[in-house]
Design a protein around this nucleic acid. Structure first.
Lengths: 257, 257
DNA sequence: TCAATACGTTTTCTCGAGATTTTTTCTTTG
DNA sequence: CAAAGAAAAAATCTCGAGAAAACGTATTGA
Protein backbone atom coordinates (compact mmCIF):
# COMPACT_ATOMS: atom_id res chain seq x y z
CA UNK A 1 0.00 0.00 0.00
CA UNK A 2 0.92 3.59 -0.18
CA UNK A 3 3.04 4.66 2.67
CA UNK A 4 4.25 8.16 2.39
CA UNK A 5 2.81 9.90 -0.62
CA UNK A 6 -0.63 9.89 0.85
CA UNK A 7 -0.87 13.18 2.60
CA UNK A 8 -0.87 15.34 -0.48
CA UNK A 9 -3.04 13.41 -2.78
CA UNK A 10 -5.87 15.87 -3.12
CA UNK A 11 -5.67 17.04 -6.66
CA UNK A 12 -8.61 19.38 -6.64
CA UNK A 13 -6.98 22.72 -6.17
CA UNK A 14 -9.67 23.95 -3.89
CA UNK A 15 -10.87 27.47 -3.50
CA UNK A 16 -9.19 28.94 -0.50
CA UNK A 17 -8.10 26.50 2.14
CA UNK A 18 -5.51 23.97 1.21
CA UNK A 19 -6.18 20.73 3.01
CA UNK A 20 -3.44 20.60 5.56
CA UNK A 21 -4.94 17.95 7.80
CA UNK A 22 -6.18 14.52 6.95
CA UNK A 23 -9.63 15.49 8.14
CA UNK A 24 -9.83 18.29 5.62
CA UNK A 25 -8.46 16.11 2.88
CA UNK A 26 -11.07 13.46 3.56
CA UNK A 27 -13.68 16.20 3.76
CA UNK A 28 -12.81 17.52 0.32
CA UNK A 29 -12.69 14.09 -1.25
CA UNK A 30 -16.00 13.10 0.29
CA UNK A 31 -17.65 16.32 -0.79
CA UNK A 32 -16.43 15.82 -4.29
CA UNK A 33 -17.69 12.26 -4.41
CA UNK A 34 -21.09 13.31 -3.11
CA UNK A 35 -21.47 16.18 -5.54
CA UNK A 36 -20.31 14.08 -8.46
CA UNK A 37 -22.73 11.37 -7.53
CA UNK A 38 -20.33 8.56 -6.73
CA UNK A 39 -21.96 8.51 -3.34
CA UNK A 40 -25.63 8.44 -4.16
CA UNK A 41 -28.32 10.49 -2.42
CA UNK A 42 -29.71 8.76 0.62
CA UNK A 43 -26.91 6.22 0.68
CA UNK A 44 -25.73 5.03 4.03
CA UNK A 45 -22.20 6.06 4.85
CA UNK A 46 -20.62 3.28 6.86
CA UNK A 47 -17.51 4.41 8.57
CA UNK A 48 -16.02 0.94 8.62
CA UNK A 49 -16.10 0.67 4.85
CA UNK A 50 -15.19 4.23 4.03
CA UNK A 51 -12.18 4.36 6.30
CA UNK A 52 -10.50 1.75 4.16
CA UNK A 53 -11.52 3.40 0.94
CA UNK A 54 -10.16 6.77 1.99
CA UNK A 55 -7.17 5.41 3.89
CA UNK A 56 -7.82 7.25 7.13
CA UNK A 57 -8.74 6.26 10.64
CA UNK A 58 -12.28 5.82 11.78
CA UNK A 59 -12.30 8.89 13.97
CA UNK A 60 -10.82 10.98 11.20
CA UNK A 61 -13.47 9.98 8.73
CA UNK A 62 -16.09 10.59 11.36
CA UNK A 63 -14.92 14.13 11.81
CA UNK A 64 -14.93 14.69 8.08
CA UNK A 65 -18.50 13.52 7.92
CA UNK A 66 -19.54 15.85 10.69
CA UNK A 67 -17.82 18.64 8.84
CA UNK A 68 -19.90 17.79 5.80
CA UNK A 69 -23.03 18.39 7.79
CA UNK A 70 -22.12 22.07 7.57
CA UNK A 71 -22.78 21.94 3.85
CA UNK A 72 -25.95 19.92 4.37
CA UNK A 73 -24.56 17.27 2.10
CA UNK A 74 -24.58 14.70 4.89
CA UNK A 75 -27.27 14.14 7.46
CA UNK A 76 -27.00 12.26 10.73
CA UNK A 77 -29.70 11.22 13.08
CA UNK A 78 -29.01 10.30 16.64
CA UNK A 79 -27.26 7.04 16.92
CA UNK A 80 -28.04 5.72 13.50
CA UNK A 81 -25.01 6.89 11.61
CA UNK A 82 -24.59 9.09 8.60
CA UNK A 83 -26.34 9.28 5.27
CA UNK A 84 -25.84 11.25 2.13
CA UNK A 85 -28.45 13.99 2.07
CA UNK A 86 -31.40 12.83 -0.02
CA UNK A 87 -32.62 14.71 -3.02
CA UNK A 88 -36.08 15.50 -4.26
CA UNK A 89 -37.76 17.80 -6.71
CA UNK A 90 -39.38 19.86 -3.99
CA UNK A 91 -36.03 20.27 -2.31
CA UNK A 92 -34.47 21.55 -5.50
CA UNK A 93 -37.35 23.93 -5.99
CA UNK A 94 -36.66 25.26 -2.52
CA UNK A 95 -32.95 25.52 -3.22
CA UNK A 96 -33.59 27.33 -6.47
CA UNK A 97 -35.99 29.85 -5.01
CA UNK A 98 -33.71 30.59 -2.09
CA UNK A 99 -30.76 30.78 -4.38
CA UNK A 100 -32.50 33.38 -6.51
CA UNK A 101 -33.05 35.47 -3.42
CA UNK A 102 -29.48 35.16 -2.18
CA UNK A 103 -27.68 35.48 -5.48
CA UNK A 104 -29.72 38.48 -6.53
CA UNK A 105 -28.95 40.22 -3.28
CA UNK A 106 -25.29 39.37 -3.71
CA UNK A 107 -25.33 40.71 -7.23
CA UNK A 108 -27.06 43.89 -6.17
CA UNK A 109 -24.51 44.54 -3.47
CA UNK A 110 -21.72 43.68 -5.86
CA UNK A 111 -23.02 46.06 -8.51
CA UNK A 112 -23.41 48.78 -5.94
CA UNK A 113 -20.03 48.38 -4.30
CA UNK A 114 -17.98 47.11 -7.20
CA UNK A 115 -15.00 49.13 -8.29
CA UNK A 116 -13.51 49.54 -11.71
CA UNK A 117 -11.26 46.60 -11.00
CA UNK A 118 -14.33 44.52 -10.38
CA UNK A 119 -15.72 45.54 -13.76
CA UNK A 120 -12.49 44.50 -15.36
CA UNK A 121 -12.51 41.16 -13.58
CA UNK A 122 -16.08 40.56 -14.74
CA UNK A 123 -15.17 41.32 -18.31
CA UNK A 124 -12.13 39.09 -18.13
CA UNK A 125 -14.04 36.19 -16.64
CA UNK A 126 -16.75 36.57 -19.23
CA UNK A 127 -14.21 36.59 -22.00
CA UNK A 128 -12.55 33.42 -20.74
CA UNK A 129 -15.95 31.80 -20.40
CA UNK A 130 -16.92 32.82 -23.92
CA UNK A 131 -13.77 31.26 -25.31
CA UNK A 132 -14.57 28.03 -23.57
CA UNK A 133 -18.14 28.17 -24.81
CA UNK A 134 -17.00 28.58 -28.38
CA UNK A 135 -15.13 25.31 -28.38
CA UNK A 136 -17.42 23.52 -25.98
CA UNK A 137 -18.01 19.90 -26.88
CA UNK A 138 -20.41 18.12 -24.59
CA UNK A 139 -18.99 14.78 -25.53
CA UNK A 140 -15.51 15.54 -24.28
CA UNK A 141 -15.00 15.26 -20.59
CA UNK A 142 -12.11 17.70 -20.34
CA UNK A 143 -13.91 20.32 -22.38
CA UNK A 144 -16.95 20.10 -20.16
CA UNK A 145 -14.88 20.36 -17.00
CA UNK A 146 -13.06 23.33 -18.39
CA UNK A 147 -16.31 25.09 -19.17
CA UNK A 148 -17.69 24.23 -15.76
CA UNK A 149 -14.71 25.74 -14.01
CA UNK A 150 -14.89 28.94 -15.99
CA UNK A 151 -18.63 29.16 -15.49
CA UNK A 152 -18.19 28.86 -11.76
CA UNK A 153 -15.45 31.45 -11.81
CA UNK A 154 -17.58 33.87 -13.81
CA UNK A 155 -20.40 33.68 -11.32
CA UNK A 156 -17.99 33.97 -8.44
CA UNK A 157 -16.40 37.07 -9.88
CA UNK A 158 -19.81 38.60 -10.48
CA UNK A 159 -20.61 38.60 -6.79
CA UNK A 160 -17.06 38.99 -5.58
CA UNK A 161 -17.63 42.64 -4.72
CA UNK A 162 -20.46 41.78 -2.35
CA UNK A 163 -19.16 42.84 1.05
CA UNK A 164 -21.46 40.63 3.07
CA UNK A 165 -19.73 37.53 4.37
CA UNK A 166 -23.02 35.90 5.27
CA UNK A 167 -24.55 36.42 1.87
CA UNK A 168 -21.48 34.92 0.28
CA UNK A 169 -21.56 32.04 2.75
CA UNK A 170 -25.16 31.21 1.95
CA UNK A 171 -24.50 31.57 -1.75
CA UNK A 172 -21.71 29.04 -1.56
CA UNK A 173 -23.86 26.58 0.33
CA UNK A 174 -26.70 26.79 -2.11
CA UNK A 175 -24.40 26.65 -5.09
CA UNK A 176 -22.86 23.42 -3.85
CA UNK A 177 -26.29 21.97 -3.31
CA UNK A 178 -27.42 22.87 -6.79
CA UNK A 179 -24.21 21.46 -8.21
CA UNK A 180 -25.47 18.02 -7.34
CA UNK A 181 -28.70 18.53 -9.22
CA UNK A 182 -27.01 20.20 -12.13
CA UNK A 183 -24.75 17.21 -12.62
CA UNK A 184 -27.82 15.01 -12.65
CA UNK A 185 -29.30 17.20 -15.33
CA UNK A 186 -26.18 17.12 -17.44
CA UNK A 187 -25.71 13.39 -17.20
CA UNK A 188 -29.25 12.54 -18.15
CA UNK A 189 -30.32 15.31 -20.42
CA UNK A 190 -27.31 16.74 -22.16
CA UNK A 191 -29.21 19.27 -24.21
CA UNK A 192 -27.25 22.46 -23.84
CA UNK A 193 -29.33 25.56 -23.91
CA UNK A 194 -28.04 28.84 -25.16
CA UNK A 195 -26.25 29.86 -22.04
CA UNK A 196 -23.93 32.17 -23.90
CA UNK A 197 -26.67 34.67 -24.57
CA UNK A 198 -27.69 34.60 -20.94
CA UNK A 199 -24.14 35.17 -19.80
CA UNK A 200 -23.73 38.00 -22.26
CA UNK A 201 -26.82 39.79 -21.02
CA UNK A 202 -25.78 39.19 -17.44
CA UNK A 203 -22.35 40.60 -18.05
CA UNK A 204 -23.66 43.64 -19.91
CA UNK A 205 -26.25 44.52 -17.31
CA UNK A 206 -23.79 44.09 -14.47
CA UNK A 207 -21.08 46.24 -15.95
CA UNK A 208 -23.73 48.82 -16.89
CA UNK A 209 -24.69 48.85 -13.19
CA UNK A 210 -28.27 48.01 -14.04
CA UNK A 211 -29.06 45.97 -10.97
CA UNK A 212 -32.70 45.33 -11.77
CA UNK A 213 -32.00 44.01 -15.22
CA UNK A 214 -29.02 41.97 -14.05
CA UNK A 215 -31.10 40.35 -11.34
CA UNK A 216 -33.87 39.59 -13.78
CA UNK A 217 -31.44 37.87 -16.09
CA UNK A 218 -29.78 36.03 -13.27
CA UNK A 219 -33.13 34.87 -11.94
CA UNK A 220 -34.08 33.41 -15.25
CA UNK A 221 -30.63 31.91 -15.59
CA UNK A 222 -30.97 30.07 -12.32
CA UNK A 223 -34.53 28.98 -12.92
CA UNK A 224 -33.58 27.44 -16.25
CA UNK A 225 -31.71 24.74 -14.40
CA UNK A 226 -34.83 23.98 -12.41
CA UNK A 227 -36.78 23.61 -15.64
CA UNK A 228 -34.14 21.23 -16.94
CA UNK A 229 -34.51 19.09 -13.86
CA UNK A 230 -38.28 19.21 -14.11
CA UNK A 231 -38.11 17.80 -17.60
CA UNK A 232 -36.22 14.75 -16.42
CA UNK A 233 -38.02 11.47 -15.89
CA UNK A 234 -39.08 11.27 -12.27
CA UNK A 235 -37.13 8.11 -11.76
CA UNK A 236 -33.89 10.02 -12.02
CA UNK A 237 -34.59 12.47 -9.27
CA UNK A 238 -36.80 10.33 -7.11
CA UNK A 239 -35.11 6.99 -6.79
CA UNK A 240 -37.05 4.40 -4.83
CA UNK A 241 -36.67 5.62 -1.32
CA UNK A 242 -34.31 2.97 -0.15
CA UNK A 243 -33.83 3.64 3.47
CA UNK A 244 -30.80 1.69 4.33
CA UNK A 245 -28.22 -0.70 3.19
CA UNK A 246 -28.11 -3.55 0.76
CA UNK A 247 -31.64 -3.95 -0.35
CA UNK A 248 -33.24 -7.06 0.92
CA UNK A 249 -33.39 -9.86 -1.49
CA UNK A 250 -31.02 -9.75 -4.37
CA UNK A 251 -31.30 -6.18 -5.37
CA UNK A 252 -27.88 -5.64 -6.81
CA UNK A 253 -25.95 -3.51 -4.44
CA UNK A 254 -24.34 -1.57 -7.18
CA UNK A 255 -22.41 0.70 -4.92
CA UNK A 256 -19.56 0.93 -7.28
CA UNK A 257 -16.66 2.32 -5.40
CA UNK B 1 -18.85 19.20 39.02
CA UNK B 2 -21.48 17.00 37.64
CA UNK B 3 -20.81 13.32 37.69
CA UNK B 4 -23.70 11.33 36.40
CA UNK B 5 -26.51 13.66 35.45
CA UNK B 6 -24.66 14.70 32.39
CA UNK B 7 -26.71 13.21 29.66
CA UNK B 8 -29.80 15.31 30.16
CA UNK B 9 -28.46 18.49 31.50
CA UNK B 10 -29.36 20.73 28.63
CA UNK B 11 -32.20 22.71 30.06
CA UNK B 12 -32.87 24.75 26.98
CA UNK B 13 -35.71 22.81 25.47
CA UNK B 14 -34.06 22.73 22.15
CA UNK B 15 -35.83 22.77 18.87
CA UNK B 16 -36.07 19.22 17.69
CA UNK B 17 -33.24 16.91 18.53
CA UNK B 18 -32.74 15.74 22.05
CA UNK B 19 -29.12 15.08 22.75
CA UNK B 20 -28.82 11.33 22.66
CA UNK B 21 -25.09 11.08 22.20
CA UNK B 22 -22.32 12.61 24.22
CA UNK B 23 -21.21 14.56 21.20
CA UNK B 24 -24.55 16.27 20.90
CA UNK B 25 -24.70 16.94 24.60
CA UNK B 26 -21.31 18.58 24.53
CA UNK B 27 -22.37 20.47 21.41
CA UNK B 28 -25.42 21.92 23.14
CA UNK B 29 -23.52 22.84 26.27
CA UNK B 30 -20.75 24.47 24.31
CA UNK B 31 -23.17 26.41 22.18
CA UNK B 32 -24.97 27.66 25.22
CA UNK B 33 -21.75 28.73 26.88
CA UNK B 34 -20.64 30.56 23.77
CA UNK B 35 -23.95 32.36 23.28
CA UNK B 36 -24.16 33.31 26.92
CA UNK B 37 -20.66 34.63 26.84
CA UNK B 38 -18.99 32.27 29.27
CA UNK B 39 -16.66 31.44 26.44
CA UNK B 40 -15.59 34.80 25.18
CA UNK B 41 -15.34 35.80 21.53
CA UNK B 42 -11.97 34.99 20.05
CA UNK B 43 -11.00 32.80 22.98
CA UNK B 44 -8.88 29.79 22.24
CA UNK B 45 -10.62 26.50 22.83
CA UNK B 46 -8.04 24.05 24.08
CA UNK B 47 -9.28 20.52 23.83
CA UNK B 48 -7.04 19.31 26.65
CA UNK B 49 -8.61 21.72 29.12
CA UNK B 50 -12.18 21.54 27.93
CA UNK B 51 -12.36 17.78 27.92
CA UNK B 52 -11.99 17.81 31.68
CA UNK B 53 -14.45 20.63 32.13
CA UNK B 54 -17.13 18.90 30.09
CA UNK B 55 -16.30 15.37 31.23
CA UNK B 56 -15.89 13.85 27.79
CA UNK B 57 -13.04 12.39 25.82
CA UNK B 58 -10.79 14.46 23.63
CA UNK B 59 -12.14 13.08 20.38
CA UNK B 60 -15.69 13.62 21.52
CA UNK B 61 -15.11 17.24 22.33
CA UNK B 62 -13.31 17.64 19.05
CA UNK B 63 -16.33 16.41 17.16
CA UNK B 64 -18.60 18.72 19.11
CA UNK B 65 -16.39 21.64 18.16
CA UNK B 66 -16.49 20.70 14.52
CA UNK B 67 -20.23 20.49 14.79
CA UNK B 68 -20.26 24.01 16.13
CA UNK B 69 -18.55 25.22 13.00
CA UNK B 70 -21.89 24.62 11.32
CA UNK B 71 -23.36 27.46 13.32
CA UNK B 72 -20.30 29.62 12.70
CA UNK B 73 -19.88 29.98 16.43
CA UNK B 74 -16.49 28.27 16.30
CA UNK B 75 -13.76 28.76 13.76
CA UNK B 76 -10.80 26.53 13.07
CA UNK B 77 -7.77 27.16 10.96
CA UNK B 78 -5.58 24.42 9.69
CA UNK B 79 -3.53 22.89 12.39
CA UNK B 80 -3.87 25.67 14.89
CA UNK B 81 -6.87 24.48 16.83
CA UNK B 82 -10.25 26.01 17.50
CA UNK B 83 -11.36 29.46 18.55
CA UNK B 84 -14.64 31.01 19.50
CA UNK B 85 -15.83 33.06 16.56
CA UNK B 86 -14.81 36.67 17.10
CA UNK B 87 -17.28 39.49 17.13
CA UNK B 88 -17.16 42.95 15.69
CA UNK B 89 -19.50 45.76 14.91
CA UNK B 90 -19.13 45.30 11.19
CA UNK B 91 -19.93 41.64 11.57
CA UNK B 92 -23.12 42.43 13.44
CA UNK B 93 -24.07 44.96 10.81
CA UNK B 94 -23.67 42.24 8.23
CA UNK B 95 -25.67 39.78 10.31
CA UNK B 96 -28.43 42.33 10.80
CA UNK B 97 -28.71 43.25 7.15
CA UNK B 98 -28.75 39.64 6.05
CA UNK B 99 -31.19 38.79 8.77
CA UNK B 100 -33.56 41.46 7.55
CA UNK B 101 -33.44 39.93 4.11
CA UNK B 102 -34.00 36.38 5.31
CA UNK B 103 -36.62 37.06 7.96
CA UNK B 104 -38.63 39.30 5.69
CA UNK B 105 -38.66 36.65 3.03
CA UNK B 106 -39.67 34.07 5.62
CA UNK B 107 -42.44 36.34 6.85
CA UNK B 108 -43.70 36.99 3.34
CA UNK B 109 -43.88 33.31 2.58
CA UNK B 110 -45.50 32.65 5.92
CA UNK B 111 -48.13 35.32 5.36
CA UNK B 112 -48.79 33.99 1.90
CA UNK B 113 -49.03 30.34 2.83
CA UNK B 114 -50.30 30.61 6.38
CA UNK B 115 -53.61 28.99 7.20
CA UNK B 116 -56.21 30.00 9.71
CA UNK B 117 -54.51 27.82 12.25
CA UNK B 118 -51.34 29.80 11.69
CA UNK B 119 -53.24 33.01 12.36
CA UNK B 120 -54.53 31.55 15.55
CA UNK B 121 -51.08 30.46 16.64
CA UNK B 122 -49.74 33.94 15.94
CA UNK B 123 -52.48 35.51 18.03
CA UNK B 124 -51.88 33.05 20.83
CA UNK B 125 -48.14 33.61 20.86
CA UNK B 126 -48.64 37.36 20.79
CA UNK B 127 -51.05 37.14 23.68
CA UNK B 128 -48.65 35.11 25.76
CA UNK B 129 -45.87 37.52 24.91
CA UNK B 130 -48.01 40.49 25.87
CA UNK B 131 -48.75 38.97 29.23
CA UNK B 132 -45.08 38.51 29.87
CA UNK B 133 -44.39 42.07 28.73
CA UNK B 134 -46.94 43.46 31.16
CA UNK B 135 -45.16 42.08 34.16
CA UNK B 136 -41.68 42.32 32.75
CA UNK B 137 -39.09 43.39 35.30
CA UNK B 138 -35.61 43.76 33.89
CA UNK B 139 -34.09 43.33 37.29
CA UNK B 140 -35.46 39.85 37.80
CA UNK B 141 -33.62 37.08 36.04
CA UNK B 142 -36.53 34.69 35.76
CA UNK B 143 -38.83 37.36 34.41
CA UNK B 144 -36.32 38.27 31.74
CA UNK B 145 -35.77 34.67 30.74
CA UNK B 146 -39.50 34.11 30.55
CA UNK B 147 -39.91 37.09 28.27
CA UNK B 148 -37.00 35.97 26.14
CA UNK B 149 -38.49 32.56 25.62
CA UNK B 150 -41.88 33.92 24.66
CA UNK B 151 -40.30 36.48 22.38
CA UNK B 152 -38.38 33.78 20.58
CA UNK B 153 -41.51 31.67 20.33
CA UNK B 154 -43.51 34.57 18.91
CA UNK B 155 -41.02 35.16 16.16
CA UNK B 156 -40.76 31.46 15.46
CA UNK B 157 -44.50 31.13 15.12
CA UNK B 158 -44.63 34.13 12.82
CA UNK B 159 -42.47 32.42 10.24
CA UNK B 160 -43.59 28.89 11.02
CA UNK B 161 -45.75 28.77 7.91
CA UNK B 162 -42.80 29.45 5.66
CA UNK B 163 -42.44 26.29 3.61
CA UNK B 164 -38.81 26.80 2.67
CA UNK B 165 -36.46 24.68 4.68
CA UNK B 166 -33.44 26.67 3.56
CA UNK B 167 -34.92 30.00 4.52
CA UNK B 168 -35.74 28.64 7.93
CA UNK B 169 -32.27 27.15 8.24
CA UNK B 170 -30.61 30.46 7.47
CA UNK B 171 -32.98 32.26 9.78
CA UNK B 172 -32.00 29.99 12.65
CA UNK B 173 -28.31 30.47 11.99
CA UNK B 174 -28.58 34.23 11.93
CA UNK B 175 -30.82 34.30 14.95
CA UNK B 176 -28.29 32.35 16.98
CA UNK B 177 -25.56 34.68 15.87
CA UNK B 178 -27.53 37.73 16.86
CA UNK B 179 -28.37 36.15 20.19
CA UNK B 180 -24.77 36.60 21.21
CA UNK B 181 -24.84 40.31 20.43
CA UNK B 182 -28.24 40.80 21.98
CA UNK B 183 -27.02 39.38 25.24
CA UNK B 184 -24.13 41.80 25.12
CA UNK B 185 -26.57 44.62 24.63
CA UNK B 186 -28.79 43.55 27.48
CA UNK B 187 -25.96 43.05 29.92
CA UNK B 188 -24.38 46.41 29.28
CA UNK B 189 -27.26 48.65 28.38
CA UNK B 190 -30.46 47.40 29.96
CA UNK B 191 -32.66 50.16 28.64
CA UNK B 192 -35.78 48.47 27.36
CA UNK B 193 -37.36 50.07 24.41
CA UNK B 194 -41.05 49.89 23.70
CA UNK B 195 -41.04 46.52 22.06
CA UNK B 196 -44.69 45.91 22.85
CA UNK B 197 -45.86 48.45 20.31
CA UNK B 198 -43.60 46.90 17.69
CA UNK B 199 -44.88 43.44 18.40
CA UNK B 200 -48.45 44.66 18.26
CA UNK B 201 -47.98 46.25 14.86
CA UNK B 202 -46.16 43.18 13.65
CA UNK B 203 -48.94 40.91 14.80
CA UNK B 204 -51.67 43.08 13.32
CA UNK B 205 -50.02 43.41 9.95
CA UNK B 206 -49.26 39.71 9.75
CA UNK B 207 -52.75 38.54 10.58
CA UNK B 208 -54.14 41.15 8.21
CA UNK B 209 -51.94 39.56 5.52
CA UNK B 210 -50.29 42.88 4.80
CA UNK B 211 -46.86 41.54 3.89
CA UNK B 212 -45.31 44.88 2.99
CA UNK B 213 -46.28 46.54 6.23
CA UNK B 214 -45.33 43.52 8.28
CA UNK B 215 -41.89 43.41 6.69
CA UNK B 216 -41.40 47.11 7.26
CA UNK B 217 -42.21 46.70 10.93
CA UNK B 218 -40.04 43.62 11.21
CA UNK B 219 -37.14 45.38 9.52
CA UNK B 220 -37.27 48.23 11.96
CA UNK B 221 -37.66 45.78 14.80
CA UNK B 222 -34.47 43.97 13.86
CA UNK B 223 -32.50 47.13 13.16
CA UNK B 224 -33.34 48.49 16.59
CA UNK B 225 -31.06 45.88 18.11
CA UNK B 226 -28.26 47.05 15.87
CA UNK B 227 -28.79 50.60 17.08
CA UNK B 228 -28.64 49.37 20.66
CA UNK B 229 -25.31 47.73 19.96
CA UNK B 230 -24.04 50.83 18.20
CA UNK B 231 -24.73 52.90 21.28
CA UNK B 232 -22.53 50.71 23.42
CA UNK B 233 -19.02 51.81 24.27
CA UNK B 234 -16.63 50.34 21.72
CA UNK B 235 -14.70 48.53 24.40
CA UNK B 236 -17.60 46.17 24.92
CA UNK B 237 -17.85 44.93 21.39
CA UNK B 238 -14.22 45.25 20.45
CA UNK B 239 -12.25 43.81 23.32
CA UNK B 240 -8.49 43.99 23.03
CA UNK B 241 -7.66 41.07 20.81
CA UNK B 242 -6.08 38.98 23.49
CA UNK B 243 -5.07 35.68 22.10
CA UNK B 244 -5.20 33.31 24.97
CA UNK B 245 -2.99 32.68 27.87
CA UNK B 246 -1.89 34.46 30.99
CA UNK B 247 -0.68 37.47 29.13
CA UNK B 248 1.39 39.18 31.72
CA UNK B 249 3.58 42.16 31.25
CA UNK B 250 4.57 43.73 27.99
CA UNK B 251 1.37 43.93 26.04
CA UNK B 252 2.92 43.94 22.68
CA UNK B 253 0.24 42.95 20.27
CA UNK B 254 1.78 42.93 16.90
CA UNK B 255 -1.10 41.25 15.19
CA UNK B 256 -1.85 42.63 11.82
CA UNK B 257 -5.59 42.98 12.01
C1' DT C 1 -49.72 -17.90 6.54
C1' DC C 2 -48.88 -14.14 9.58
C1' DA C 3 -47.23 -11.86 13.70
C1' DA C 4 -44.39 -11.37 17.73
C1' DT C 5 -40.16 -12.33 20.21
C1' DA C 6 -35.32 -13.50 21.08
C1' DC C 7 -30.73 -13.98 19.46
C1' DG C 8 -26.49 -13.00 16.71
C1' DT C 9 -24.02 -9.91 13.77
C1' DT C 10 -22.89 -5.54 12.29
C1' DT C 11 -22.19 -0.74 13.09
C1' DT C 12 -21.69 3.11 15.83
C1' DC C 13 -19.89 5.67 19.59
C1' DT C 14 -16.30 6.61 23.03
C1' DC C 15 -11.77 6.64 25.18
C1' DG C 16 -6.69 6.70 25.79
C1' DA C 17 -1.81 6.74 23.79
C1' DG C 18 1.74 8.09 20.20
C1' DA C 19 3.66 11.06 16.27
C1' DT C 20 3.86 16.09 14.14
C1' DT C 21 3.35 20.60 14.37
C1' DT C 22 3.05 25.07 16.63
C1' DT C 23 4.20 28.16 20.28
C1' DT C 24 7.00 29.86 23.90
C1' DT C 25 11.28 30.75 26.12
C1' DC C 26 16.04 31.16 26.62
C1' DT C 27 20.52 31.91 24.90
C1' DT C 28 23.76 34.07 21.88
C1' DT C 29 25.36 37.78 18.88
C1' DG C 30 25.70 42.33 16.36
C1' DC D 1 19.24 47.14 23.53
C1' DA D 2 17.28 44.57 19.79
C1' DA D 3 17.13 40.56 16.86
C1' DA D 4 17.92 35.96 15.22
C1' DG D 5 18.27 31.08 16.23
C1' DA D 6 17.71 26.85 18.73
C1' DA D 7 15.82 23.99 22.24
C1' DA D 8 11.98 22.84 25.30
C1' DA D 9 7.12 22.56 26.16
C1' DA D 10 2.46 22.52 24.97
C1' DA D 11 -1.15 21.51 21.99
C1' DT D 12 -2.98 19.39 18.10
C1' DC D 13 -3.88 15.67 15.07
C1' DT D 14 -4.24 10.72 14.17
C1' DC D 15 -4.86 5.82 15.01
C1' DG D 16 -6.51 1.44 17.07
C1' DA D 17 -9.34 -1.14 20.55
C1' DG D 18 -13.35 -1.81 23.65
C1' DA D 19 -18.46 -0.98 25.18
C1' DA D 20 -23.30 0.20 23.74
C1' DA D 21 -26.84 0.21 20.52
C1' DA D 22 -29.32 -0.97 16.24
C1' DC D 23 -30.35 -3.90 12.40
C1' DG D 24 -31.34 -8.37 10.36
C1' DT D 25 -32.46 -13.12 10.88
C1' DA D 26 -34.33 -17.07 12.70
C1' DT D 27 -37.54 -19.30 15.68
C1' DT D 28 -41.97 -20.11 17.84
C1' DG D 29 -46.83 -19.81 18.48
C1' DA D 30 -51.66 -18.93 16.89
Amino acid sequence: MSETALRKETADGSAVAEPKTLVEAAYHRLRRDIIEGHLKPGEKLRVEHLKDQYDVGAGTLREALQLLMTDALVVAQGQRGFNVAPISLSDFEDITRTRVLIECEALRQSIQRGTDEWEGAVMAAFHRLSRAEERLDWEVESSREDWEGRNKTFHEVLISACPSRWIRHFQLLLYRQSERYRRLSMNNNPIPRDVHAEHLKLCEASVARDADRACAVLTEHIIRTLDAIRSLPPSVIEPPAKVASVGRGKARNGDAQ
